[in-house]
Design a protein around this nucleic acid. Sequence first.
DNA 1: CGGGTTTTGTTTATTTGCGGCACAAAATCA
DNA 2: TGATTTTGTGCCGCAAATAAACAAAACCCG
Lengths: 385, 385
Amino acid sequence: MHDAGEATRAGIATHVGLTRAAVSSLVEQLLEHGFVSEWGKTSSGQAGRPGTVLKVARSGPAGLGVEINIDYVTVCVVDLAGTDRVRLVEHFDNRGVQPSEVLARAARLAARAIGSAAEQDLVPAGVHVALPGLVTGGTVRQAPNLGWQRVAVEGLFAQALLALRPAHRPLPVSSDNEANAAALAELWFGAGTEGVRSFLYLTGEIGIGGALVLGGELLRGAHGFAGEIGHMVVDPDGPLCRCGARGCLEQYAGQAALLTAAGIDADAGVQGVAELERRARRGDPVALSAIERAGQRLGVVLSGAVNLFDPDAVMLGGVYRELMDWLAPAVDRELALRVVSGLWSEDGKRLRASSSLGDAARGAAGVIVREVLADPAACAEREQG
Amino acid sequence: MHDAGEATRAGIATHVGLTRAAVSSLVEQLLEHGFVSEWGKTSSGQAGRPGTVLKVARSGPAGLGVEINIDYVTVCVVDLAGTDRVRLVEHFDNRGVQPSEVLARAARLAARAIGSAAEQDLVPAGVHVALPGLVTGGTVRQAPNLGWQRVAVEGLFAQALLALRPAHRPLPVSSDNEANAAALAELWFGAGTEGVRSFLYLTGEIGIGGALVLGGELLRGAHGFAGEIGHMVVDPDGPLCRCGARGCLEQYAGQAALLTAAGIDADAGVQGVAELERRARRGDPVALSAIERAGQRLGVVLSGAVNLFDPDAVMLGGVYRELMDWLAPAVDRELALRVVSGLWSEDGKRLRASSSLGDAARGAAGVIVREVLADPAACAEREQG
DNA sequence: CGGGTTTTGTTTATTTGCGGCACAAAATCA
DNA sequence: TGATTTTGTGCCGCAAATAAACAAAACCCG
C-alpha cells in the first residue's frame, strides 16, 4: 500500500489522483532541476516491485526568513524539505532606534545566515521579513510598539543587503505581519496540528498579535490588516489604549497588563514573564488570579472571534504558551459557555498552545520555500537566466 | 474596444485571457445546449467588423430559492441571467408549527412557483432552502427563533415536493443559513456594490444573523457556522441570552431589545418596527436614543469584527435597513474610533445599507444558478439522461 | 464609390498535458 | 523456479488551448 511514510511515484499518483505516467514525467523534470532526488528503494515487506523513494532535495534553493521584533531579531534558513538549517538570533532593544539602522543590522545578520547556508550548499531564493505591525505593499504602515510609521521596509532591507553583498544578484524581498508569519509556521511546521486547516492564532507579546488561517490559507483581508484581535473591545469605557480607543483586549490581556496585575514591573520584559511563571508555578494567589482574570477576558473576546469564524482550533503563542496551564481553564470555560454552535470542546481539544516549532522567522522562510515549490520551473529559470 | 456593456466572443477572449478561437468553441457548445443565444450585432460606431452580441438565455435552466423565515416564506425563481422571474410570498407565523408542516407548506408554494416558471419556459435545476438557524449537512442543527432542533430539512422538503409532483424527476435540494443566502444575494445582485468583494453582512431580524463574504466567496468556517455575529459579547455580565450566555449583541441590538428600549411592545413584529421608524422620523427622543444606543453597541462589536476580518464594507440588512439614517451615525462613529488600521472611512462609505434587491430567497436561487453556470455540461447531461 | 484599415469569427495545424494501455523490472509468495 | 504483485516507463490518442492564416463585415478616406 501507499504509506504516507515514504514518497514514491506510484504513491504520489494514487494520492493526487493522477496517473503514474503523469507523475513520472513531472518527477523527471524535478529531478533534472535538482528539486528532488531518489533515495534508494522502499523495503515495504509486501509483494511487488519496491518503489524508488523520492525526497525533496536538502541542498539547492532555500528560504530565508527574518523576524524583526521589539527586542530581538531572528534569521533562519529553511530548506525545501522544511527543516531549519541555519538560525541566528540577536537580542537588542529596537525601540527608538532608527528603522534604517534596525534594518541594516537585520541585513547583516541575514548576510551571515546566507554565508552559513552556502556552506551547506543552500541558496536562498528570496527573503521574507516579518514585523510586529501593520504591513502592506512592502511598507510598515504603523508599528506602535516599535515606534515606526510609514517605513518602506522591503526597499530599505533590500538596499542594505545589496550593500553588504555587492557582487551578488539581489534577492527578492517580501514582508508581512509577524503574527501572520508565526501562524504560517504553525500551519506548516507545527506538531500535532496536521488535521487543523483553519485556526485562529494569537501571539501574546508586548502587543497582542493575531492571524487567521482558513483552509490552509492565510486570511489577509481587503487591505491586508486582518487578524488584529488585540484591539477587539472588552469594555467600551475601559482604559485608554495606544490605538486611541478604550478598553481594547491588549489593555487586559497584553503582557504589560498581565504583569501589572500580578504586581510585577511591566517593563521587566522576558524576565518579568519568567517571574510570573515562577510565581504561578508555586501557587502565588495574586499571580494566579491575574492570569485567570486575563484568561477570562481573553476567552470572552475569543468566543466572539470563534462565533464569527468558526475555526477548527485556537492557538495561543508567545507569552501565552508558557502560561498555558493556568490560562487555559479560564479561556476554555468562556469559550464553552459562549460559542453558540454548542460544539466547542465537543470533538477534541480546540484550544491549544502553539507548537514551539512555530515562530515567525521560520514561517517567513517557509513563505519563500512555498513560493519556490509552487513554481519550481520559474525558480530554475531565474537561477540560470 | 471591448466594452463591458455587451458580451461578444472577442470581448470575452481578451477579458479572460483565452484565444478568440478557444472562446468560440466554448460558446458553440453553450449555444448548442441553449445556455446562451446570439442577439444581433454590436453597433459600436468604431471601425471593424461588429461582434455578435451574446446573451445568457432567458429560458431553460433556472434556480429555485426558498426562504423560510419566522413569519413568512418566500419562493423565487431566477433565470441564468440573474433576474427574478417568479416571486411568491406567503405570510404566516411559523413559530411553534411542526417543521414537517412548515416545510410542506413551503413545498406547496415552491410547486406553484415551478408551475409559473414553466409558463415562461424556465425549468429549475435545483432548490436551495435558506433558514434562520445553524444549518449543516442538510439539517438544521438549531434554529432557536423557530424552535427547531435537528430537523432534516433537505430530506423533508424533497419528500414533500416529490409528493406534490409525483410524475416529475426529483429536484436536488440543498440548504443553508438565511444570512448566508442574503449575503450572497447582496454580492451577486446588490446595486452599487460591484467593487466590494469582501464584506460583512448583518440581518437584523428577530435574531441578528451575520455572514462573511471574502473575495467573492462565502466564508463558511470549519463546521459551517461562521458569521454568528449576534452572539459576540457586549458585556460579559449583561442580560441572559437565549443561547445560554450573557450579554450577547442580540440582547442589545436585536429587534426585541430595540423595540423594548423605545417603549414599544417587543412582540409587535413588523408593525412594531414600522412604529419605531415613524417615531424616529418625527424626532421622538426616546426612539432616537434607543436606536442610537443600539447603534453604539453594534458599532463596538462591529469594530471588533472589522479588526479581525478587514472587509471592504459592512452591510446592514433586515430591520437595520429601514433605521439606517438614525442608526448609521452611532455605528460609524464607533468604527472610525476603534478600527485599528485607522483607515475606516478613509476611502468612501464603508458602512452601507443592504440593497433592497438582496434577499435570502433570491440569493438561494442564485446558488442554484451559479451551480448550473459553473458546470453547464453536467446540467445539460442530467437534463437528457 | 471603391480600396485600405480594423476588428471579428472561423478554420487548420500544432503543442501540451494527461489518461489508457501495454510492457519490462524487481520484489515476494508458493 | 515459476506465479503474482507492484512499480516505473514508453507509446498512442484524446481533449483543449495556442498560433497563425483567412474570410467577413463594418468604418475611413480620398
